[in-house]
């Protein structure tokens, strides 16, 4: 369809400009010398410097990374088991409830999830803090992990497992030598998805956190409400760079795995 080349390129240009221009502006103005975010006053890295002297921000970033790493491990573990239950166990009683509980958190507004988690922690008399955020994040991210892993499982040739058993491998060897290597890329992407979702979450963290466990999005949010500052631009740019790097590495790894 070469006749439609021009409108196609125009659509692509407009679409990607819409998607990336706000991010680009944000990054560019993180290097602005002026305190005014929208008026360019020369190149400077002073906001990055001041960022690293902001102890509260650094502490929050540390908490966020720890919460994300831990909750992503739990979510991947739970998500793997859930994916097997959905894909391989056939019918069992209350399967419908289980399926609903896996898929509902994908679309239910985070405010409801956060609110309900807060209520259960209050009702159980649990002090809110680091571990309640981990539990909350592990819960909603395990559903995403389950979906990713289930898709991979569904695409896996069942006859590979049968072949392994036919060749004398018991269930443990079949899982370790045949299923797990096939599943590994999905486990990695499930963990990454869970990690990033947790790192990004503001709402559930706000409901489940306690004193001394302010995550990075919570810290950013409270500053953003007071107005746009170049320091937040710098912080955001660093986060974007980190995510961009992670995406790039996983894309390269994915390509290597395929070939």
């Amino acid at each position: 369809m070469t006749s439609a080349r021009l409108p196609r390129l125009a659509t692509l240009a407009f679409g990607f400009a819409f998607l990336y221009a706000p991010i680009a502006l944000l990054v560019i103005y993180s290097f602005n010398a002026s305190k005014l975010v929208t008026v360019w006053a020369g190149f400077s890295t002073r906001w990055y410097a001041s960022l690293f002297s902001n102890a509260a921000l650094i502490a929050s970033a540390k908490i966020s990374l720890q919460v994300a790493a831990l909750s992503a491990i739990i979510a991947t573990f739970n998500g793997t088991l859930a994916a097997f239950a959905l894909e391989r166990f056939g019918a069992f009683r209350t399967r419908g409830v289980f399926v609903g509980a896996i898929y509902a958190p994908l679309v239910i507004p985070e405010v409801i999830l956060g609110l309900s988690l807060l209520l259960i922690f209050v009702a159980l008399g649990v002090d809110r803090g680091f571990w309640t955020i981990v539990a909350g994040h592990a819960t909603f991210t395990m559903c995403f992990a389950a979906v990713v892993i289930r898709a991979r499982l569904a695409g896996m040739d069942r006859s590979l497992e049968e072949a392994a058993m036919d060749l004398g491998a018991g269930p443990v060897m079949t899982f370790a030598r045949v299923v797990l290597p096939q599943l590994a890329p999905a486990l990695v992407s499930a963990w990454m998805l869970a990690f990033i979702l947790s790192l990004d979450d503001l709402v559930i963290a706000s409901f489940t956190s306690g004193p001394g466990s302010t995550t990075l999005p919570m810290r950013i949010y409270s500053q953003v409400r007071l107005g746009v500052t170049p320091e937040i631009n710098a912080m955001s740019s660093l986060l974007l760079a980190a995510v961009g790097l992670a995406l790039f590495i996983s894309a390269i790894a994915g390509r290597r795995h395929e070939s």
Partner: peptide, 15 residues
């Protein structure tokens, strides 16, 4: 179970 049988199989998809 399959892994305890002195039988082997060649799969249609080769697997």
């Amino acid at each position: 179970p399959p892994h305890r049988r002195p039988v082997n199989m060649m799969f249609q998809s080769y697997a």
